[in-house]
């Protein structure tokens, strides 16, 4: 299990939180997702054998929240 925190740009409303939370948690291997709205951070923990940082980052990015 690995813990990674992503910093994003452009989270502008609480509905963004839900979007990212749902999308990332649906990825295989991701066990927890916590989206910090005020700080625009996404804290995740995932199984390294099933997924990796770049997959999660790409998912967040595709939703329209550029990962820094």
């Amino acid at each position: 299990m690995k813990n990674v925190t992503f910093r994003t740009e452009g989270m502008s409303c609480p509905s963004c939180v839900k979007k990212i939370e749902v999308a990332v948690s649906r990825l295989p291997g991701v066990s927890t997702v916590q989206v910090l709205f005020t700080t625009a951070k996404v804290k995740t923990s995932f199984d390294e054998t099933l997924t990796n940082e770049s997959i999660i980052a790409a998912t967040i990015d595709r939703l329209g929240y550029h990962v820094l």
């Binding site: 409303c13 609480p14 509905s15 939180v17 839900k18 910090l36 005020t38 700080t39 951070k41």
Partner: peptide, 20 residues
């Protein structure tokens, strides 16, 4: 500090439900 910041108020949760 971040953890304390993320302690959401009921109004905030309402807005989340609202948008959903």
């Amino acid at each position: 500090v971040e953890e304390a910041q993320e302690n959401k108020a009921p109004t905030e949760r309402f807005l989340e439900h609202f948008s959903r």
